[in-house]
């Protein structure tokens, strides 16, 4: 249930519907507690609406423009990001996925009967063990280790920088 203040604020803000508005207006006209609350809140509302904004120092805009002069001039985002590249990447993945899908469907032999349903088994014509040789595994692990070390280095540097900032 709404309090008197809530109803009066909704009336002042104009955030209530026409029916509600008429009902509150009647209450203000007939009920003393509503009339008093309306008088108080209207004055508070006027005071807040007519309050002057704070003024920064005289040199504020000059300081901002001086700081801005050191920055690179802003440009529209579409000049920075080439949509062609984004569409190209999307097209590459879509084509790759479509090609794999077509290959799998074309080389599979689906068996469907009323008794059992078997998923089509894709027939890949290459030996996976050739790709996953000990050398390729070693390269893969080496790259992983390097990336992990780089990530750790970055994380520690960031922590160190945060600590420095706090201390200074």
């Amino acid at each position: 249930m709404k309090t008197i203040d809530e109803e009066i604020w909704a009336y002042i803000d104009g955030s209530c519907d026409a029916l509600e508005r008429t009902r509150i207006a009647e209450k203000i006209a007939t009920d003393e507690s509503y009339a008093l609350a309306f008088q108080e809140l209207s004055k508070l509302n006027e005071l807040m609406a007519s309050e002057e904004l704070e003024e920064p120092s005289m040199s504020f805009s000059r300081n901002v423009m001086d700081a801005v002069a050191q920055e690179i001039a802003p440009k529209k985002l579409n000049t920075k990001v080439n949509n062609g590249i984004i569409y190209g990447i999307a097209a590459f993945f879509l084509l790759s996925l479509s090609a794999i899908f077509i290959y799998v469907v074309a080389n599979s032999s689906p068996t469907v009967s009323t008794a059992e349903f078997k998923l089509p088994s894709p027939a890949f014509n290459f030996d996976l063990s050739e790709v996953l040789s000990p050398l390729s595994m070693k390269i893969f692990l080496m790259v992983d280790l390097t990336l992990a070390l780089l990530y750790m280095d970055r994380l520690l540097r960031r922590k160190m920088h945060a600590n420095k900032t706090t201390l200074s």
Partner: peptide, 15 residues
């Protein structure tokens, strides 16, 4: 804060 806000807004105006 206000000065920093305007500088940040300038940098990101393109967005």
């Amino acid at each position: 804060i206000a000065q920093d806000t305007f500088v940040k807004a300038y940098r990101a105006l393109g967005t």
